[in-house]
Write a protein that binds this DNA or RNA. Sequence first.
DNA 1: ATAAATTTTCATGATTTTTTCACATATTTG
DNA 2: CAAATATGTGAAAAAATCATGAAAATTTAT
Lengths: 218, 218
Amino acid sequence: MKILVVDDEVLIREVVKEYLQFDGFSVDEASNGEEAVELGLQNDYNLIIMDIMMPKKDGYQAVKEIKKIKDVPVLMLSARGEEFDKLFGFDLGVDDYVTKPFSPKELVARVKAIIKRNEKSGTKLEFGGLVLDDKAHEVSIDGKIVNLTPKEYDLLKYFVSNNHIALSREQLLTNIWGYDFYGDDRTVDTHVKTLRHQLGKYGQYIKTVRKVGYKFEF
Amino acid sequence: MKILVVDDEVLIREVVKEYLQFDGFSVDEASNGEEAVELGLQNDYNLIIMDIMMPKKDGYQAVKEIKKIKDVPVLMLSARGEEFDKLFGFDLGVDDYVTKPFSPKELVARVKAIIKRNEKSGTKLEFGGLVLDDKAHEVSIDGKIVNLTPKEYDLLKYFVSNNHIALSREQLLTNIWGYDFYGDDRTVDTHVKTLRHQLGKYGQYIKTVRKVGYKFEF
DNA sequence: ATAAATTTTCATGATTTTTTCACATATTTG
DNA sequence: CAAATATGTGAAAAAATCATGAAAATTTAT
């Protein structure tokens, strides 16, 4: 769960960050609209918390530019007195807003509410930064999508859904390749090799179980 | 546009009602949870504004009972200090909340925001410059209307309403062509080809999921 | 009824993926 | 330690899958 906090006041950023991190969110910061657009387009955030009044590029403009390209939820921070109408009248597609000064607790509650609304029911298997989204048929490491071949994907899925369980080559073959696979046992080895390589630092979690096969252990 | 305002304090109801009516909403009132449930089930409201602390039946309970039967947007009113977590931790499906004391202007802004959200979801699906207006049965790219064939339209609609979800050819065939289609799987491929072509630079967002099918991913 | 538009089929070639296999490296056993 | 056994690796062969274009079939409009 990644959130981008955009505000020119470092103090506010820090407080918000702390609270969000306490609740398990990973937080990036930007101090103005330009930085926000840059980060917002580069990364996939679950939410962007955006101040309105900022130097270089204000919050309205930044949101507009990001939303043009990406569909990401936005919560606006506005100083009390700033026009609400401006926020909603203009079709920015803002999900929520909070007026300053705000209680961090309330902010976090709203953040959770937005994320919940936007959550596509989780068929996600997560192991640290390794995420397998079965619905999307997609694997990512530390937020970056890894392109796995179909077999690699199936293999990984089978591994992670059998965390801590040693799996024989035969078992892997019958369950992933199908009962009618008559090829070489060692085919598994090759796929484990490529999969380990694809998973980078998470490759080590596929452990070799000598004389038996392999197991995933996180 | 009909809104139900539920609060045991008549003064609050009156103020809220006045502001909403000024903005062209039609407003009903209820002074406790029981009345709220009754009215909520009888009428079709675009929104229910619900206080939490009330005699006879509290706001939580009332919302729960109404939501069980009907899918209607809800905005909760909570006294400052009441637990936010309770609202969101429990899966009530509340759309927003406002803490007392609130500025009527803010309340109205939030009301408009909720209604807008719920309207939008029915008719227009937007992904950057790609807009599918289901009411108009029309697709446009960067403001320019694209002439899609019926199948292309159906296919795109199914894709975008399943953003981030991998769809098998079979799934696409049964859901778009109908369960009684007995033709070739590969028909899908051809339509994806033409659709991609029609969508120009947005064609790339229909991704091939090897060995499975396709997915739209924006 | 004829023309136009749309949908479907299908064969082709390009591309990606899977498998095999030989050799390298590591571990266990006698 | 040496032999035996098991796994890691790279490259090449084999296989599978997809994009594409064109033609046939079907539906819709004129």
